[in-house]
Design a protein around this nucleic acid. Structure first.
Lengths: 108, 108
DNA sequence: TGCGCACATGTCAGATCGGACATACATTCA
DNA sequence: TGAATGTATGTCCGATCTGACATGTGCGCA
């Protein structure tokens, strides 16, 4: 069993108690999870760099502090839509997002 | 700006550069729309490059032909979640996505 | 010790999304 | 012309997501 995969799943809020379900994950599903993790990490990094509270960020996107907490925690109840919109609300550009999800890449 | 109105406009094929000036979209809303457009275009490009029908792609992601059509049309009923999952189903990597949403970037 | 602030967690009603289906449109081919 | 194939559009309703709220945890400070 791939331990690093399990830890990555659990880190993003996925329950990995069912071995069969875990083994059934495809590369695409793993990429999707990696994407979510990259975005949520970038969000927290950017928010803290700006010295903004979860409450302040919540106000920017018309949401609540608790939901911002769930976003940053990678709660499964949070969609990629909301993750991305929150990241954009920190002033991130599409280039910033690209850099966050594929960090081995550099500016042209 | 009202979210549902924005999505309707996007679905109706408004040219983004015109929309911002005319309707006063914020930079974040612009970036979000640009992101969706970039992903849906990349999806169609990749699917056609592989010679796969909408029906075949739909089968891959456990969906229907009609929904794939809506994805590629940028229908407002389609979330960014589904857009991304469909793109990943064409075999796209996170690097491919990064390249699609920030095309001015190059490989490291 | 208690207070205030930031963040985390659980719940829920209403809003949005998604697969499925029917059907229409477009193109190709015989 | 008609059949086959691929794509587009509209609708339904069960499933998922969301903002809001309540409440809990952790930490610094006086």
């Amino acid at each position: 069993m791939d331990e690093s995969k399990r830890k990555r799943l659990e880190a993003n809020g996925w329950k990995v108690s069912d071995t069969q379900e875990f083994l059934g994950l495809t590369d695409e599903e793993m990429a999707y999870i990696d994407l979510r993790i990259a975005v949520k990490k970038a969000l927290r990094t950017r928010r803290e760099a700006q010295g903004i509270t979860q409450r302040a960020l919540a106000n920017r996107i018309g949401s609540s502090q608790s939901r911002v907490a769930k976003i940053e925690a990678g709660d499964p109840s949070v969609s990629l839509d909301l993750l991305i919109r929150a990241l954009l609300a920190t002033g991130a550009t599409l280039a910033d997002i690209a850099d966050a999800i594929a960090p081995e890449r550099v500016q042209a």
